[in-house]
Design a protein around this nucleic acid. Structure first.
Lengths: 315, 315
DNA sequence: AGATTGTGTGTAAACGTTTACACAGGTGAT
DNA sequence: ATCACCTGTGTAAACGTTTACACACAATCT
């Protein structure tokens, strides 16, 4: 491994000077600068990030916490973070928490042990434990008092879902709910209910978990009471679509279905899934930008990103 | 941050002794052991991984290279790696290479700068550049001479696809090919063709890229020449399914479709996709185990994992 | 002329570990 | 009694950086 010492020897200056030239901090004469830079190029010098992190107590690694990378919503978000990170010469360590507070804490500890520069978290119980830690933190898709967060406009998304169904002529609507642990799911349902009430459209709500455990016969009968179904995300919507197809219930003829997320494969199911697009990738890259601003001590504000309706054949 | 020095002070021994106790290396009296361990518990000491990595020139981070985490096949693999890593007190840094050799090199450099313990790579051009590096390397889903690799049995998978179609009574079969840059895709097609020949079943092959750019009319007519379609992966299969549904071609009545991967959503498309399941998660965790064995200097051999047919309604 | 300021460079400490080496005391064999 | 060896502990160097501090010299100001 070629170190700063090799450069010092090669260019006949001290390591301090080399460091200063490389980081453009402090003074250096034209000639010395040239010599150091040439030596660095000649020896193909790359600074050791570990040594740097040790010295400055701050690595260029950011920790990212997600419930489960296997959930198809997250890869895009992560890719957004990763790309932004690399552009800024940062790396990303991902932790899957499985909604488990203990795993979260374990990862937080790991991030600390690695002198991570900051944390982006899409899971829920962090904030309390995080208080002991002074590392910058950006919350993704969940809002907690006194923390910077970034999310998409879930209320609006919910409203769009409902309005679209109403416009498409659905008489009575079923609002399928996601896990109530997440503010994002709650807000989507809230937005939808708000619109349905405003338009005086009849509706019912039901957590997906309940729907799933109903026997097929009962589930079919229950669903047939509605002309439109609002789902908390596309995965759920696809399961609903699948069920309806299996029971030979025409979509959108008999019942219309609208999802949320606009996952890649929502385009490929049949009928194509009408859904709300959230800018998953941008959510990730903006989260990273916020984190950097935070780390730089800038005044930053939480951000809400816009969503839009994607019309397809399921409505 | 509580350091080894604090422990030394607290338990009235030198830092060297503390380090030895903590790592169970070298001697230590019963009493000293107890005092150090108690101090560590009392102060909630966690070793700083950066300092350790600097000293030993080996961090407990492994680098993972994938083409694109957004490709739905990879999250499972990565999750497998991640879980195995955490179990062994390792962390994972992921790099998306987008099949770009330059990005690969950049990530390899980054891994080096971070004193990474090893590399798991699912991309193609690494091996040549890697030679300068002595870091342990495990190749995933691709085989290269003189490198340890792990993959699923693509030849067998291809055979299973073909045999199943033949059994289901498909007269003539279309083998849709994936990118020829990947040995995995090539082997799948090879296995399929092998079986088709053995059973004297007529077939044709076509890269998916070609299929995709045909006008709808022509594509329909072309597809209707076959009773069965073999796809290189589930994403492709879903696109094909979608096209057939749009053109009102009955599946499996008129044409049967078989995919490869058994992604989560393959169960939720309609009709449910018959496919080959590869153990993505286990591929990942086994890759990590191989890497550890390699790093420990053990003699390890490349591994091939079994695949199996998942029957659903598309055939 | 002397004081002040700006520029350029080196010395050495620090970050938090691990580990080679030295040394001391105890045990058992000769 | 001498030697060898094992056990237990401390000192200090090393890993590759950054940076506080000191110093030297030149230019500018009074």
């Amino acid at each position: 491994m070629v170190t700063i010492k090799d450069l010092a020897k090669e260019s006949c200056v001290s390591v301090a000077t080399v460091s200063r030239v490389l980081n453009s901090s402090g003074y250096a004469s034209r000639d010395v600068k040239r010599r150091v830079l040439e030596a660095a190029a000649k020896l193909d010098y790359k600074p050791n990030e570990v040594a740097r992190a040790l010295n400055t107590s701050r690595s260029n690694i950011v920790g990212v916490l997600v419930p489960d990378i296997t959930n198809p919503y997250f890869p895009k978000v992560i890719r957004g973070i990763e790309d932004a990170a690399i552009r800024n010469n940062y790396r990303v360590i991902i932790g899957n928490t499985d909604h488990d507070a203990e795993k979260e804490m374990k990862y937080l500890e790991i991030f600390r042990q690695n002198n991570c520069a900051g944390i982006i978290s899409a899971t829920w119980s962090v904030s309390r434990e995080h208080r002991a830690d002074s590392r910058p933190l950006v919350l993704l898709d969940r809002v907690v008092e006194n923390h910077i967060s970034i999310e998409s406009d879930n209320l609006k998304g919910g409203r769009l879902q409902a309005e679209h169904l109403i416009e498409s002529g659905a008489d009575k609507v079923l609002v399928v709910k996601g896990s109530s642990d997440y503010s994002s799911f709650n807000n989507r349902a809230l937005g939808a209910e708000e619109s349905l009430k405003a338009h005086k459209t009849g509706y019912d709500t039901l957590p997906y978990a309940h729907l799933e455990q109903m026997p097929d016969e009962a589930r079919e009968n229950f669903m047939l009471k509605f002309g439109g179904i609002i789902c908390p995300n596309d995965v759920t919507a696809c399961k609903v679509l699948k069920f309806l197809a299996t029971r030979n219930i025409p979509v959108p003829g008999r019942v219309k279905v609208v999802g949320y997320d606009n996952l890649d494969f929502s385009e490929y199911v049949h009928p194509g899934l009408t859904t709300i697009e959230q800018p998953a990738y941008d959510l990730g890259s903006n989260a990273f930008d916020l984190l950097m601003a935070l780390a730089a001590g800038e005044a930053v504000e939480s951000r809400i990103m816009d969503v839009k309706l994607i019309r397809r054949q399921s409505t």
